[in-house]
Nucleic acid binder design. Structure first.
Lengths: 243, 243
DNA sequence: CTTGAACCTCACGCAGCGTAAGGTCGTATG
DNA sequence: CATACGACCTTACGCTGCGTGAGGTTCAAG
């Protein structure tokens, strides 16, 4: 009968090895005898472990005379929160990979390991760029913006962008004048999406522009083309604003 | 010049040890020579690692001919989500500990390690009870309910309960008849809080009652007293409902 | 007396490197 | 030219919290 506390025998032995819980007696044949107080200590250990404290920390808690429990627990909460944040951003990136993968479901192209790794690299690079061009405050603001907009709105925008870009590309190639009403309409929609994304923050708009200016490729797109398009769009808007 | 990829020299050696990335050459003196393709592979490794894949998984991705990237990434996302959920519940319990600790800030009592461990044990027991009396679906529903109510409302309720309980206790000890208007008012408030908490779900109300019936202590309170109070309250409500 | 369960004591394994310890190689400087 | 310093090399143990044998003893039941 070893584990009334849900702990394995091996765990008890381990705790004994490191001197965290030494059973208060042995039978003459060598079997460990855990007294009531040992069991209590074990329950305490189990509780503290289930809250994510390390065995070293637990030893301090149980043996050290004083250590300000308030601060300890607050620090621990902060630790966990940070881990959660990390994993959340990790999850975001993974979802980005999944989204890109399914978006580019060219059944013709050899769809496998290579494409996967490529997509992963793209997303990784992209998030590096993002860390580079946005300040931490801006990132925080974008996070809030994301929450405000909600998932569905985000997904909708992610689907609208490629369509819009394609439409603009067509007009550009056709040689349509930027002041043409069709183009101006596209440009307005473009700016609306940008506004929605940036939440109207000028700093963020600026960072985005910088990123497009200084990187050669982003999200698998050639930025030279995009710069051209952005120029076209701004001329269309200029035409709108000058009446 | 070892780490253009942000990886330590030791990491490179490790990858070589496990055969994940063997540099394609050596100088005659024995220094490792990483060719362009090695560096590319390294970047791939780094990307995949930053997404939380294990070195073994990465080896599969890079060397195996096929493995259905779609499923792999979905499974990985699920893994991470589960971890996040675990850590979130952990965080909840830690916050419960912190709350209980500061709520019972008896500056007289020796405020230190012991109280901390005691509080931890209480919260641990409490969450064990919760797992025991609620079905997983009910837990999920309570989670949703929590989100619906919002943090402030929760906190407000947590502060109101002790006050309400104390008021009822006083009336009971004074011997006020349950049909007295003062008591009926308290009882109405009591039921309102219960309704708010349970979201009107009968199953959850039932589980709560069971828990109070079958456990001897909960959240540091003697359940016998509470059962008495709940009885008193229901008599007050009966008086209200029978006109 | 024989089983089988439960306990015992080593002691390695894992994941992903960090971190010495002790030696070699290359080059900028006195 | 000797030397000092930095960058690299190999070898190998350390960390966390146990899991998982291997091989032997003890305990209660049949």
């Amino acid at each position: 009968m070893g584990e009334r506390t849900g702990l394995s025998v091996r765990a008890l032995h381990h705790y004994e090895e490191i001197g965290l819980l030494v059973p208060s007696g042995r039978t003459e044949s060598g079997h460990r005898l855990y007294a009531e107080e040992d069991v209590m200590r074990l329950q305490q250990i189990a509780s503290l472990r289930s809250l994510g404290f390390s065995l070293a920390e637990i030893r301090e808690f149980l043996d050290a005379p004083s250590f300000s429990p308030g601060r300890v627990i607050e620090l621990h909460i902060v630790r966990i929160r940070e881990r959660i944040e990390l994993e959340r951003s990790l999850c975001d990136r993974l979802e980005a990979v999944a989204a890109l993968m399914s978006a580019r479901e060219d059944p013709a192209v050899e769809n496998s390991a290579e494409k996967f790794v490529e997509t992963v690299m793209e997303v990784t690079k992209m998030s590096e760029r993002i860390e580079k061009y946005y300040t931490p405050e801006q990132l925080e603001q974008l996070e809030r913006r994301k929450l405000e907009l909600g998932e569905e709105r985000i997904r909708a925008a992610q689907e609208e962008w490629p369509v819009l870009i394609e439409q603009v590309r067509v007009e550009m190639e056709t040689g349509t004048d930027p002041s043409d009403e069709r183009v101006r309409k596209l440009a307005r929609r473009w700016m609306e999406l940008v506004e929605e994304f940036t939440g109207g923050d000028a700093g963020i708009r600026c960072s985005v522009t910088n990123m497009w200016q200084q990187e050669e490729t982003l999200m698998g797109m050639d930025t030279a083309n995009m710069r051209e398009m952005m120029d076209y769009i701004s001329r269309a808007n200029a035409a709108s604003n000058h009446r």
